[in-house]
Design a protein around this nucleic acid. Sequence first.
DNA 1: CCGTCAAGACGATACGTCTCGTCTCGCTGT
DNA 2: ACAGCGAGACGAGACGTATCGTCTTGACGG
Lengths: 197, 197
Amino acid sequence: MTPQPTRRNEQSRRAILAAALELLTETGYQTLTVEAIAARAGVGKQTIYRWWRGKGAVILDALADNVPAALALPDTGDLRADLREVLRATVAEFADPRLSATTRAITIETLADEDLAGQARDRLLRPQLNAVRARLEAAREAGQVSPDAPLDLVVELLFGPLYHRWLLRNGPLTDDYADGIVDLVVAAVTPSAGAGH
Amino acid sequence: MTPQPTRRNEQSRRAILAAALELLTETGYQTLTVEAIAARAGVGKQTIYRWWRGKGAVILDALADNVPAALALPDTGDLRADLREVLRATVAEFADPRLSATTRAITIETLADEDLAGQARDRLLRPQLNAVRARLEAAREAGQVSPDAPLDLVVELLFGPLYHRWLLRNGPLTDDYADGIVDLVVAAVTPSAGAGH
DNA sequence: CCGTCAAGACGATACGTCTCGTCTCGCTGT
DNA sequence: ACAGCGAGACGAGACGTATCGTCTTGACGG
């Protein structure tokens, strides 16, 4: 039933993932088919279905391969400036149609397929969120953030509105928008403001 | 080319929308087909394609019919309590598998089809956000919110994290989570805290 | 008034196309 | 020889279009 991974053809695997990424950026996710991936990769369809559950799993694998396991934020000592930089970068990524299409593709798959959601969360989303959380922890130790601020929640407060506006097309994604989010969140967690309940 | 709306059969229209909602809750969005809607409604396929562009448009119409054009939040004078109630209600809706499936369906369609995104935004999302914004304006006039707080952004700060966690399945949706968001946002906009940049 | 009639939406269904995922071939490398 | 491989045939099922005869509607003439 289950194929033996030791006999797997590494060349075919790489060709499939590369072809999937190419076709994704060329034609978009909706029109992407497993047969097209197989043809582009010079591979039989069955080789894809033998190792993946479908096109969603293939694309997730392809995207996850290009994401470093652990990434770190800059730490200039100025929390507001560092957060602005991260959110502005995310805004730029979402505003770029090419990159946006890629991210949107895997998000659709996450919505539709609960099994893939876990992998997408762990391999694509969490590394980004954890990096921001680490920066917030450093700020907390520096006394710039209230000691009892729920940092996981703060991270979601930063990225949640961004994803919300992007996914639901609820407005333009600009640097001013990113800065506005940062200002509000920084105000919420600044010690003098009393972020605790 | 375009059919005349005056000659439209109201019974068929209602039967189609009702059948779409029924099948949506019974079998889910992925397995939902236009042919099944037509069969359940006792209607020809062409009658659906005559008035809608596809199953996404049908479902959007069906959902929008059940949403009041203008809804208002409770105003007890306690901003924090009122916001908690709204976010707790939203959390409950997202946590309920039945209701969640319905909302998720139209969200998928919004992701995939840009034309539908506008309608979904105006008919489903905006009424909810505007109601919260109106409550925030009242709070601002009462001096509970900083005069220069960007209210549209504040609304997104409330709902963004909720949608983010729900769509990407990034954690459990609980009342505590809703309360935590409200506490942070209230801290960000409270006048003494200085929400301005 | 009321019968006639054309326009057009209706239910029903056949049709071709597309994609999916499975299955079946030889072929190849170990 | 055995298991994965490229290639592609195959059935299932959904899509969107086309076409059938029927039914409703509203305008017009007697």
